[in-house]
Amino acid sequence: MIRALRYSDPVVRALEDELQQEYIERYGGQDNSPVSPDEFGPPEGLFLVGFVGNEPVATGGFRRHADGVAEIKRMYVAHDHRGGGHARRLLAELETRAAAAGYQRIVLETGDRQPEAITLYASSGYSPADPFGYHAEEELSRFFTKDISLTATA
């Protein structure tokens, strides 16, 4: 089950803490890119949490990047639940909801020390994009984009 929650919700904050620990392990520090909880509020944004029973296991959200373009942020799956398709389901739901909110394209950034994320995005129809935002100048960052204009009607 996937539910929309506020970015400030304690469930989201706990998974965000796990995600930041993952960044420390993989990159040596937290991701300090600017994120405001209000950016993930409707109508221009949304934050989703995937559950197995009552246990929250996956997160991700979108926020406005530019006219017609949403940015996906904070995709994460808890260690004990990786490999179960949670990230793929959450990504598909984010795309559907972003298209329903009027976005035609999605952009996102991940790092090259997250090969499983790169594989997920590439296998989900994302293609390399020009650098943007907070991490635009970082060597380890990888940028992707996908046209979702047909998602809302598919």
Rank of each mutant, 00 (worst) to 15 (best):
P37G: 08
Q104I: 00
R89K: 14
F62Q: 02
G29D: 14
T110P: 05
P131R: 13
T119F: 04
D67S: 15
G111N: 01
D38M: 03
V35A: 13
G61M: 03
G41N: 14
T119M: 02
L46Y: 14
G45P: 03
L91P: 06
A100H: 07
E95T: 00
A78Y: 06
G60D: 12
G45N: 09
L120D: 07
V49A: 10
R105G: 00
A58L: 05
A92V: 05
A87N: 06
P131S: 13
T96P: 00
E71M: 02
E95V: 00
S123F: 01
P37Y: 05
P115G: 10
H86N: 07
S141H: 10
D130Q: 14
A129M: 05
Y134T: 05
E44S: 07
G53M: 12
R105W: 04
G50I: 11
N32R: 11
E137I: 02
E139T: 10
F47M: 07
A101G: 08
R105M: 09
Y134L: 00
G53E: 14
L108Y: 00
I72D: 01
Y27M: 11
L140G: 10
F47Y: 12
L91I: 05
G83I: 11
P42I: 13
H79Q: 14
A129S: 13
T59P: 07
I106Y: 03
E137K: 11
V35F: 02
V35N: 02
V49Y: 06
E139D: 14
T96R: 15
F51A: 11
H135D: 14
D130R: 12
P128W: 10
A66R: 13
L46E: 15
A92Q: 12
R74Q: 07
V57G: 04
R97S: 02
P56N: 08
A70Y: 12
D80E: 14
K73Q: 06
